[in-house]
Design a protein around this nucleic acid. Sequence first.
DNA 1: GCAAGGAGTGAACTGTGGTTCACTTCTTGA
DNA 2: TCAAGAAGTGAACCACAGTTCACTCCTTGC
Lengths: 211, 211
Amino acid sequence: MVYRRTAAASERDARTRTTILVAARDVVRESGLTGAAIAAVAARAGVAVGTVYRHFPSRDELITEVVRETCDRELAEVAAVVRSDGPPADRLVAAVELFATRALASGRLAYSMIAEPTTEAAEVLRLVIRAELAKLFASIVADGVATGAFERQDPATSGTALVGAVSEVLIGPLARQPLSGDERSEVLEHLTQFAMRAVGVRSPATLEVAR
Amino acid sequence: MVYRRTAAASERDARTRTTILVAARDVVRESGLTGAAIAAVAARAGVAVGTVYRHFPSRDELITEVVRETCDRELAEVAAVVRSDGPPADRLVAAVELFATRALASGRLAYSMIAEPTTEAAEVLRLVIRAELAKLFASIVADGVATGAFERQDPATSGTALVGAVSEVLIGPLARQPLSGDERSEVLEHLTQFAMRAVGVRSPATLEVAR
DNA sequence: GCAAGGAGTGAACTGTGGTTCACTTCTTGA
DNA sequence: TCAAGAAGTGAACCACAGTTCACTCCTTGC
């Protein structure tokens, strides 16, 4: 056997793969999922079209991985907040703010992850991720209900509804022009208050403290 | 002049147009916007592909008209509820329930209107329609705030958030299997309570009365 | 009946974008 | 240095719609 795959070789290999993945994410950030044609991604990565296919079996897989990777990172952050210490109301506000801040800062990427038209595969994945996010919110709600901090309610429905509410409020702005800093914090303020009311935070004082 | 366009002629013409439009809506209902290829619509309408293009300049226009028509009808109904008499809390519940009931009853059509991946044109239109719906909800909220029935808040944000919340809760089920009657009413119950809390209905009693 | 002109037809055209694959280039280990 | 095999290349291929247009069919009014 004259050729054996060395550590150096597979590292180079992995690097190329990563290059393509990063390029894909960049293209999505700029041109959306629709704009992420293989040719465009390859050009951005500085490789040939065929090379992309050496590392990913199909465009669908590539796009799916971009979506999954991006969302997983966001989900992990939100999850950390959810699992952190502190009263549920604070955690809820922190989660909403984190999600919102990230979304507003990411430009088109967030829109692509949340709402952009795309293929069936990515769509399914997106539904899963939204459900995941809803579950995270639901767990805060469940905690709040258990401790009596929130009114009694169905955590699953509330979690899902919160995800929808936050997304919708953020997509609106995203689809239009970017907001100024002031507008941003104002929208955020309104949004968190909406969320606090929605879960029925018991003590009105928390509304003030939470910020 | 040997040929003049008669009333009968243009009526036939209009009828063909309507036939195509109805066929398009049916196809969307069954196969979604993605499945509404010109060939499929033409086949359903019982006309040739070229005939579709005699009545609509492009697929985009056809799809856009389907979306607009469908949404306009729904919007009108919600608008009627919004402008009806009665306390804001009741109107809000009625609006949510109407929207939800329609969405749940329409099968894939609602999903297509609210969330399905599609072309840029329909997407823009959809954003407009969602904004319209948000405005309707916002006006109820504004009324509620003005009369003191709801807590103080930014009606625009709350309206948008409500649309998002309702959509998300409904799309989840829609994307999965259809719900049984019991599940439906349970989800609806949770959803309306969420909405009531979210706008900060002052009297908890209203929560009971509203149903 | 028949000429004029609009409606209807569907095969062919076109543009786009994913995918393939014969070929070239590079790396490895003897 | 060189043969083997992996990585990289990109022109060509293909599939899938949307769109066009030369042609046929039908209605109208003389």
